[in-house]
Design a protein around this nucleic acid. Structure first.
Length: 307
RNA sequence: CGCGGGGUAGAGCAGUUUGGUAGCUCGUCGGGCUCAUAACCCGGAGGUCAGGAGGUUCAAAUCCCCUCCCCGCAA
């Protein structure tokens, strides 16, 4: 099957790699977002999917808007099948109609839960114990298409979004292989989503990652997990950004945001107890564990975070 | 040239303003105490202070110049 893959970030690389390794699918082109300026020097950086595709010698197409600029290119490719995975753009009817076998999407949640841009982060943020991959037919809505199947996976108590992303990316590869075999065999049975059970997730912003110590310990720990590796939960220490990479619930009482213990680690009081900061970073500094940080930064107990 | 912090012992930092014997916490090694210990006490090792046979000076971690690297913000 002539297959066109549309995806952008690291998450999409494993599924793409799987499709490339199958004899069933011939990946004739990869579509991805434009290279973006990144980092302090604003160096133009190609998306991970592009880097992978080029290493395999697969033609890469990049559009600001595939709907406006890419329709003719897609038609010329004469794909039998198109696969989307964290592509970052919404396809038009015009494009969806091109491949005779249809367009399928790899989504990082158990739909209809967590439609949208940040399903993985929200699953972690909400403290879910289970999430998964859904393979669904792509339609003009945002993750609203009919479901081919889904597979679930557990979320460990101490796992971050980064950890879950890695697991789901691998699962996504397995799922898309399975899906492609079903499609090739003509064995496709779709189930519409229950829209009444749907939840939607938007883009994660830096402001979402600000820790409010008047929240409960569990929510704070979940925020820390959900926003690692990006954008990373943070608070303020003496008015400067103070990032928190890892934290655990702990025993203790005190005013919200107050550091109540600096004995071998940093323990901060919150609404219903305390959290222990296991991995932190101050502005301009490196990431280090709590005890290490305290060795060189004399933080008196009683210091209040968040201002 | 987007803004800013930083590079000093294995780790994290102070010392730089006001040049003048290289310091702190931890780790490490040795010894002691203890039923015992990640606890406590005593002692030791470990640093060409990012680099430049640079500049100034009697004297530079510190002041001036150049280069490299790390990080926060912004995007």
């Amino acid at each position: 099957m002539r297959t066109v893959f549309l995806g952008t970030p690291e998450f999409a690389v494993a599924p793409l790699a799987r499709l490339c390794s199958l004899s069933l699918t011939e990946v004739v082109a990869v579509v991805t977002n434009l290279d973006k300026p990144a980092g302090r020097k604003m160096i133009l950086t190609p998306p991970p999917v592009k880097i992978f595709a080029q290493s395999k010698g697969i033609p890469v197409y990049q559009y600001k808007s595939i709907r406006k600029e890419g329709v003719e290119d897609m038609r010329k490719l004469r794909p039998d099948l198109m696969i989307t995975c964290a592509f970052g753009q919404i396809l038009s009817e015009e494009i969806l109609d091109i491949p005779p076998l249809g367009v399928y999407n790899i989504h990082g949640s158990l739909l209809p839960k967590y439609r949208g841009a940040s399903p993985v982060q929200h699953a972690v943020l909400c403290g879910d114990k289970v999430t998964g991959i859904t393979i669904m037919k792509t339609d003009v809505g945002v993750d609203t298409g009919d479901i081919l199947f889904s597979e679930s996976i557990g979320i460990g108590d101490d796992e971050t979004s980064g950890d879950v992303f890695a697991k789901l990316s691998a699962l996504g590869a397995d799922c898309i292989e399975k899906a492609v075999r079903l499609i090739a065999a003509g064995n496709v049975s779709l189930t519409p989503q229950d829209d009444s059970a749907a939840t939607h997730t938007g883009m994660i912003s830096k402001a979402d990652a600000f820790i409010d110590f008047t929240d409960g310990a569990e929510l704070i720990v979940n925020k820390v997990r959900a926003f690692n590796p990006s954008p990373v939960a943070f608070t303020l220490l003496s008015g400067q950004p103070f990032k928190i990479y890892r934290a655990l619930k702990a025993e203790g009482k005190g005013a919200c945001g107050e550091i109540i213990s600096v004995d071998g680690g940093i323990t901060v009081a919150c609404k219903d107890g305390a959290v222990r900061l296991l991995s932190v970073q101050k502005a301009g500094g490196k990431v280090m564990d709590g005890a290490e940080f305290l060795r060189g930064n004399k933080i008196p107990a009683g210091t209040v975070l968040g201002k």
